[in-house]
C-alpha cells in the first residue's frame, strides 16, 4: 500500500475562491490584465506539458516527423516562384533576389496567420477536457503561440539557407526580429481571440474572418513591392496596418531600415489595442462561451 498523500495546507491552497454572477465583468480592466498575466506565469509548467503533448506528440506518428515544418515554407515559396517565372506576377523591384523577398514575406505572413489560427482555437483545442478540468485557459493561448514561434524559427533557418544560396547578407538588425514581429503577434492573436469567442456564439464570424484574411494577403506587400502598383491600389495597401508591420520586419532583416517609422508605430499601437480589447473580451466571456461549446 502506498504512503498516504498529505493534504496541502499552504496559504495558497487555502485561498478563498468565490464564484458569483458578473464577478469577471465587474473586475476592472487593469485588474483583469493582472489576473490573466499572473495565471500565465503560474501555469508555466502546464504550458510546457501541453506544448510537449500537442507539438511533439503529434509528430511521433508521421514518418517525416519534423521535416514537415521545413517543407511548408519551401513549397509555398516554390509556388510563388513558379508564378513569377510564368510572368503572372509583376512584383516590381525588390532590392534582393525575388525568391528571397518572397520567402521572407511568406514566412512573416505565415507567422501572422499562424498566430491568428492558433488563437481562434484557444478554447476548441482543449475540447477533451475543458468541461471536466478547471485551469486557466490563458495558458492555452500561450501554448498555441509558442507552437507558432517554433514553426517560425524553423522556417527562419530555411530563409537563412536561401540567403546563403542567393548571396544575400542579412543585416545585423535581424536580431531585432522578436521586437519587430511582436505587433504581428498582437494583431494575429487579438483577432484570433475575438473569433475564438464570437465564433462559438455566432459561427458566421469565423467564416467571414477567414475569407477576409485570405483577401488581405493581396493588399499586403508579401509578394510584391508596393511601389510597383497603381496609386489607387497603393492607398489601400498603405492604410493596411499589416503592410507596415510586415515591411518593417522584412526591411530590418534585409537592409536594416524602417521604411516608415510613424506608420509602423501607429500600426503597432493599433495591433496592441486590438489585442488588449480581445484579451478583455476573452476574460469576461470565456465561461459563457464554454457553456455554448458543447
Amino acid at each position: 500500500m502506498p504512503e498516504p498523500t498529505p493534504l496541502p495546507s499552504t496559504p495558497a491552497a487555502r485561498e478563498l475562491v468565490i464564484y458569483a454572477p458578473d464577478s469577471r465583468r465587474c473586475m476592472s480592466f487593469w485588474r483583469s490584465l493582472q489576473v490573466m498575466t499572473g495565471n500565465i506565469f503560474r501555469s508555466h509548467e502546464l504550458i510546457r506539458q501541453l506544448f510537449i503533448r500537442d507539438y511533439l506528440a503529434v509528430h511521433k506518428k508521421s514518418f517525416l516527423g519534423f521535416a514537415w515544418i521545413l517543407l511548408a515554407p519551401v513549397v509555398a515559396t516554390l509556388s510563388w516562384l513558379f508564378m513569377n517565372a510564368a510572368g503572372v506576377l509583376q512584383p516590381g523591384t525588390t532590392g534582393v533576389p525575388y525568391p528571397v523577398y518572397v520567402l521572407v514575406g511568406t514566412t512573416l505572413w505565415g507567422l501572422f496567420t499562424g498566430f491568428y489560427q492558433s488563437a481562434t482555437q484557444t478554447l476548441t483545442a482543449a475540447q477533451g477536457y475543458i468541461l471536466q478540468v478547471h485551469y486557466p485557459h490563458e495558458a492555452l493561448l500561450v501554448k498555441q503561440a509558442l507552437e507558432q514561434i517554433v514553426n517560425f524559427s524553423v522556417a527562419l533557418l530555411v530563409n537563412l539557407l536561401a540567403f546563403l544560396w542567393f548571396g544575400v547578407r542579412p543585416h545585423w538588425m535581424i536580431v531585432l526580429l522578436p521586437v519587430t514581429t511582436l505587433p504581428l503577434f498582437f494583431l494575429g492573436a487579438g483577432l484570433g481571440l475575438i473569433i475564438s469567442v464570437l465564433g462559438v456564439v455566432a459561427t458566421e464570424f469565423r467564416r467571414v474572418c477567414e475569407v477576409a484574411i485570405g483577401l488581405v494577403l493581396f493588399i499586403t506587400p508579401v509578394l510584391y513591392n508596393p511601389a510597383a502598383i497603381g496609386p489607387r491600389f497603393q492607398a489601400v495597401v498603405r492604410w493596411n496596418p499589416l503592410t507596415h508591420l510586415l515591411e518593417t520586419a522584412r526591411s530590418t532583416m534585409l537592409t536594416g531600415t524602417v521604411p516608415d517609422p510613424l506608420a509602423f508605430a501607429l500600426s503597432a499601437l493599433f495591433a496592441l489595442l486590438v489585442f488588449l480589447l480581445a484579451w478583455r473580451l476573452f476574460f469576461v466571456s470565456e465561461h459563457r462561451v464554454i457553456e455554448k461549446l458543447f
Binding site: 468541461l131 471536466q132 464554454i290
Partner: peptide, 8 residues
C-alpha cells in the same frame, strides 16, 4: 468546479 459561471 469553476467551469460554468452561476447566474445567481
Amino acid at each position: 468546479n469553476g467551469i460554468f459561471p452561476p447566474d445567481g
